Amino acid sequence: MTGLPPLSSTRSERVRQVTALGRRAARDRQGRFLVEGPQAVRELLGYAAGAAEVLYVTPAALDRHADLVEQAVRLGVAVRECTADVLGVMAGTEHPQGLLAVARRVDVPLERALAAVGEQGFVVVLAHVRDPGNAGTVLRAADAFGAAAVVVSAASVDVYNPKVVRSTAGSLFHLPVSVGTPVQEVLQACRARGIRLLAADGSGQTRLPDVDLTGPHAWVMGNEAWGLPPDVLAGCDAAVSVPIRRAESLNLAMAATVCLHASSVATGAV
């Protein structure tokens, strides 16, 4: 702790700077983002502590989560107490959980993400995925089922959007995540590494139970509304559909979870 009095003014310059990180332009300009809530903060400190800069904590959370505050202090993260009103303004959530960290970006270059695939791994490519909840859930599923990395293409949602960060439940800090590369460049880089490209497509001619999931491969997941563009489908080695009984379709997060689980079983990732 700094020994300074708690931040109490929602109009202070510091509060305005932190609050601005709720907007993508400010995140891009500062190279920082917000991590809200004890679960996400715990994973940040446990897996990417070097990225953590400041931890803001309310008096109630200071007592309730003393272990996290002590861990932050041990790791050299600045800790600043603030009122619940101030933290609510900075977090931009209706019911903030008393802990809010400011952290530097944790994404890695595309080549580093693909290098993690190795000879038996698999990677997830999100192509023009726009919904924060879907993106965060796919990233969480990728973490759960042992994906080597997640690649989020250019024109997709910002992985540092607070809604994405919250929905990953800390998985953002567990595996390499690459952002901002155009889809066709991602596909080309996968081919150069011998990574087979499997397009998840509801109309795909190859059924999931019939696809070979041994060896390095990438699941290419498209936009929630219109799926994958024709040029992306054409650039993949197979278009794979998940057999379903009666429902009209699966949403992106559900389909990704099913495909990733199949890969984890085939590759022995979990």
Rank of each mutant, 00 (worst) to 15 (best):
S12Q: 10
E13T: 11
E13F: 03
R16I: 06
V18Q: 02
T19A: 14
A20E: 04
L21E: 03
G22D: 02
G22F: 00
R23P: 03
R23E: 12
R24C: 06
A25G: 11
R29T: 15
R29N: 10
G31Q: 13
R32F: 10
F33M: 08
V35C: 07
V35D: 06
P38T: 04
A40K: 03
R42Y: 06
L44I: 03
G46P: 05
G46R: 10
Y47V: 06
Y47C: 12
Y47I: 00
A48K: 08
A49Y: 06
G50K: 10
A51N: 06
A51D: 05
A52M: 06
L55A: 09
T58D: 09
P59W: 14
A60K: 13
A60G: 11
A61D: 06
L62W: 15
R64Q: 14
D67H: 10
L68N: 00
V73D: 09
V73N: 14
R74T: 05
G76F: 14
V79Q: 15
V79M: 11
E81T: 07
C82Q: 08
A84S: 10
V86R: 04
V86I: 00
L87C: 07
L87T: 01
G88I: 07
G88H: 09
M90T: 01
G92I: 00
G92A: 00
G92N: 01
T93K: 07
E94N: 07
E94D: 14
H95R: 15
H95Y: 11
Q97Y: 06
Q97N: 10
Q97S: 10
L100H: 04
A103L: 01
R105C: 10
R105V: 08
D107Y: 08
R112F: 07
A113R: 01
L114I: 00
L114A: 02
